[in-house]
Design a protein around this nucleic acid. Structure first.
Lengths: 261, 261
DNA sequence: TGACATTTGAATGTTTATGATTGTATTATA
DNA sequence: TATAATACAATCATAAACATTCAAATGTCA
């Protein structure tokens, strides 16, 4: 038996693949190392997104294997994001061409929208979108080009706008880092803001902004557009309460995504 | 037991193939050399992309989370492709801007080129490239946009050419499905041919074609360009033998990628 | 033969992995 | 809900693996 960490990791993964779960004590005995070492192994595998850590062991993970820090962000408000994704999916109609920008919330939107089974064209700068859509014949996916940004799993910048300037969509689904009545939509990355703005400018129909409650009232670094171009805000229950306290602009529809549903 | 490096390398590879992992101490004892020598062996194999180096040993190279059929294709000539990738990496210089089209061989090129540690700009339509480059700060990766094609893990078509028409590279590294003195470079997909042609037309330096022996003399469906625009062909040993029988065009340099090296 | 490149091993200081210890958090059971 | 058992997190010391540099042995070519 190999005595190197990587060998243990492989073995643990194969065991999880087979049984669905593993427990710390059993592995420690079987591999003749301390339980502490096993815990560290499992933590490392969990950080890579290969297993799901549980009390006393680990279980198989079904979702995408994606980057740890991104994974963490993606699982920040999983229920809220899933609810928002489902709510947006209801607004999409057969034949739509959708602009969808990058972000963990909009990735969830892509997942829900693609699962509808409707014929759609999705134009996005999210690098994970191909992975989600690879099996769906009914989705025509157009990826924006541009400079790759690992941290945000996206491409952006002026080269992205080049493609966007040639495509017109009838709906835009936009995730933001800040949603504020005064500052409008804001993001922490200049290039992302530019690409998102280009998307909105080339949308002839409704602009739908998705934002969980932790984005409401927040102002990030770079402005995308002001709120008057936004038609619909899809948020969670808590976000709806926050919006009640704010003076909502004219013509903005607020949709509360129900998590119980 | 032979004591030459290449012999050890082959033995180590076979052992990894069989067990999934090897450890430094065990190999050193088994092969009667110092652990330092084993480490150097593993480092060399890792540099060629044949194994994955870990603390204490090495493991079989992790596979990308990619489609089965693509995976199968990618592992068709793994040693040849790794050798070709390493050979191309030697031709790349600090500061280069590279066009690299899609395909399993060129993906291997990206892996080798990215591992060099040199500051580079890579422009590609291969959707798996971000995954390979996500940890490399020294690589600026520009992804071409366009319509996503799941089967080939790429984006292509006229929207891709839009971005390509704005970027000029000083080297192009092109994978093909057919390499023929009479028919030139050919691929089975029209859009891919268009995107590849655009890349070559926007390259001011050398055009390097990579093709394992199973592509030499083959004619696929759609022509990319004729051979007179190709400066270098990088192929494997068997491919070199095939090229000897063919009348090589003027000005075409043929590089044989050595697998033992 | 001599100059040179390649391979190998030794010596060095550094990084990583492991296990013991302590106290805290979580789960199970009465 | 209270309590015991288990799993955990945090810290430290030790050991193993590592990177780096140098020098010796080996092979190659002129």
């Amino acid at each position: 038996m190999t005595t190197i960490p990587a060998g243990r990791h492989q073995y643990i993964l194969s065991l999880i693949e087979e049984n669905g779960t593993v427990n710390v004590g059993g592995l420690a005995e079987e591999l003749s190392v301390s339980e502490l070492t096993i815990r560290r192994d499992l933590d490392q595998l969990a950080k890579k997104g290969l297993v799901e850590r549980t009390h006393g062991g680990a279980t198989a993970r079904r979702n995408l294997p994606i980057e740890p820090d991104y994974l963490q962000k993606a699982s920040e408000f999983p229920l809220e994001k899933a609810a928002i994704g489902a709510a947006v999916a209801k607004m999409v109609e057969e034949g739509d061409t959708l602009y969808i920008n990058s972000g963990s919330t909009t990735l969830e939107v892509i997942r829900c929208v693609a699962a509808l089974g409707k014929k759609l064209t999705i134009v996005t700068n999210n690098i994970d979108a191909p992975w989600l859509c690879k099996e769906f014949e009914h989705i025509r996916l157009i990826l924006a080009g541009g400079v790759y940004r690992p941290r945000s799993h996206s491409v952006s910048g002026s080269l992205s706008s080049l493609l966007v300037s040639e495509v017109y969509a009838n709906k835009a689904i936009i995730g933001v880092d800040g949603f504020s009545p005064t500052a409008g939509l804001t993001t922490p990355i200049l290039e992302e803001a530019e690409t998102t703005r280009a998307m909105i400018e080339h949308t002839v129909g409704k602009v739908i902004v998705v934002a969980a409650s932790n984005k409401i009232g927040v102002v990030s670094n770079f402005k995308t557009i002001s709120l008057d171009r936004v038609d619909v805000l899809v948020t969670d229950k808590k976000g709806g309460q926050l919006m009640d306290q704010i003076e909502t602009p004219e013509g903005l529809t607020i949709v509360i995504a129900d998590m119980q549903e």
